[in-house]
């Protein structure tokens, strides 16, 4: 298991610079827009997506066959991908939260005339919301990569994001059209109370179902 994770991490080493650029970009964006909800979503999404590219490395080098000839079980192979996915999403969100706190502190120190109000609760909700989003994408993406391969899986990812946006836009359009008034304040108060718990629960359920589907596909796969 350790070897499998190390293999993926070494493959991802080339993303070090890109990640550094993302962090710089986010820092500037926080300072510029004074938005405290930005970094956790962006960083966890980017790291979460980068992790999925380990499938591309395996596919380009046709590594799957070789990996299965090593002392590992198919369960280990699938599980290692999910451990990496979950850990990277969490690290992304934590990194985003820490970065936001640091940048806001610095900004408040150097620009005491316009203090940014850092609401830790909403920062946390955003972080969990970001994690939920990327967990949803990964949970759909990983089984489809096991089923159809990384190349086709990538196309599906864009289709998926497009469909999600379309769905949200369509729903809001429909609600306005039929004159349905969403009580945003009650949703907000519900999310403020139970949001984090809800997100954590959904994230665990999504990853668990996704893992089971991936393992089922992979355990029957012939090379």
């Amino acid at each position: 298991m350790k070897g499998l994770i190390k293999k993926d991490l070494l493959n991802l080493a080339s993303y070090k610079t890109s990640l550094f650029i993302v962090i710089i970009f986010c820092s500037i964006a926080i300072a510029w827009t004074t938005s405290v909800t930005f970094a956790p979503i962006v960083i966890s999404t980017i790291i979460g997506m980068i992790v999925l590219s380990t499938f591309n490395y395996d596919e380009i080098s046709k590594s799957d066959k070789y990996i299965l000839s090593l002392p590992v079980t198919r369960k280990d192979v699938v599980l290692s991908k999910y451990i990496l996915a979950v850990v990277s999403t969490v690290i992304g969100a934590v990194l985003g939260v820490i970065l936001t706190i640091i940048i806001v502190q610095i900004m408040n120190m150097v620009r005491s005339s316009e203090l940014i109000n850092l609401n830790y609760e909403s920062l946390l909700s955003t972080a969990f919301g970001g994690m939920f989003g990327i967990a949803l994408i990964q949970s759909i993406q990983i089984p489809s990569i096991y089923k159809w391969g990384a190349e086709k899986g990538r196309i599906q990812m864009f289709v998926l994001i497009f469909l999600l946006i379309l769905l949200i836009l369509g729903a809001s359009f429909l609600f306005t059209k039929i004159g349905f008034n969403i009580d945003m304040s009650s949703i907000e108060s519900f999310l403020n109370k139970f949001g984090i718990l809800l997100f954590v629960g959904l994230i665990i359920i999504m990853y668990s179902i996704s893992y089971k589907i991936s393992y089922k596909i992979f355990s029957h796969k012939d090379y």
Binding site: N11, D58, I60
Partner: peptide, 14 residues
């Protein structure tokens, strides 16, 4: 077992 496969190995970016 030691295995050499003609068309499969670890990533070439290692």
């Amino acid at each position: 077992l030691g295995v050499v496969l003609d068309d499969s190995f670890l990533s070439e970016y290692l």
